[in-house]
Computed example of a mutant assay.
Amino acid sequence: MARAVLEPREDREVFVVPLAIRPEHIDDNGHVNNVVYVGWLQEAGTAHWNARFDAETRARWSWVALRHEIDYLRALQPDDVAVARTWVGDPQGPRFARYVRIEDGQGRLCAQGLSEWCLVDASTLRPHRIPADMLPTFEAR
């Protein structure tokens, strides 16, 4: 059973990532394969992180995906245009929930996902509580 439609919180930045639908993404049913969406969830989160934090911060910290959950609502076809809209929830120690909406070129919701990410020290890969000074970067501008 699909969850309610994910809507971004007003206090969070919604970061938009264009998605490329490549020929290898199309499965035997003629639409984007479900596995591709998992990659898009990761791609959206990584793009958001890379766009908002400098090289020094990105060298110090890394993220590890703990779980992904996706609701598939409308199939994307080979000629469709798609975007991912992503935002984060509240930190829970070293964890962040990241939400992603995948929409077609007409703004129709095609899939939505929730990923749980854990912040780790890049040199030791040990979990680390999300620093308070990191949080404002994810707030609405």
Results as ranks from 00 to 15, higher is better:
A97K: 09
Q42R: 13
D104R: 04
A132S: 06
S115V: 04
W61E: 05
R108E: 14
R129Q: 11
A111G: 06
R74K: 15
I26C: 02
A55W: 11
R67H: 14
A59P: 04
R108C: 04
W49N: 05
Q92C: 10
S123G: 06
A132N: 09
A122S: 09
A51S: 03
R85F: 03
A47N: 10
P8E: 09
V5A: 14
V14Q: 06
L114G: 00
W87P: 06
A51Q: 07
A84N: 07
G105I: 10
W117D: 01
G89P: 09
E69S: 07
R52K: 13
E103V: 08
D79Q: 12
D79W: 12
A132C: 04
G93P: 05
R95F: 01
Y72I: 02
A44S: 05
S115Q: 05
R67P: 02
N34S: 09
V64N: 00
F53K: 04
L41C: 14
A75C: 08
R3F: 01
T46G: 14
E13T: 13
Y99V: 05
H48T: 06
P131K: 02
G45I: 04
A47W: 02
A47C: 15
L114F: 00
M134H: 13
R95C: 11
H128D: 01
D27L: 08
E7M: 15
T137D: 07
V17G: 02
A65C: 05
W49E: 04
D104C: 06
D27S: 04
R58S: 04
L41V: 07
V83R: 08
V32Y: 00
R95W: 05
W40T: 11
A122G: 04
N33P: 05
V83P: 03
L135F: 05
Q92F: 08
R60N: 11
N50M: 13
H128A: 13
R126V: 00
P23T: 14
R22G: 01
Y37L: 02
E7Q: 14
D71H: 07
A84R: 01
V14G: 00
N29E: 13
A44R: 02
I70Y: 00
I130C: 03
M1D: 11
V64Q: 08
R60T: 13
E56D: 14
R95Q: 13
L73F: 09
V16K: 13
E139P: 01
W49G: 07
W63N: 08
P23Q: 11
P131M: 07
T46K: 15
L76D: 03
H48R: 14
A20Q: 15
V38C: 13
H48C: 07
G93M: 10
V64R: 14
F96I: 09
G107N: 03
L135V: 12
T137P: 09
C118I: 00
A75P: 14
D133N: 11
E24I: 13
R74Y: 00
N50I: 11
F53A: 01
Q77D: 06
I26E: 04
V5F: 05
A20R: 12
R52T: 10
R9C: 11
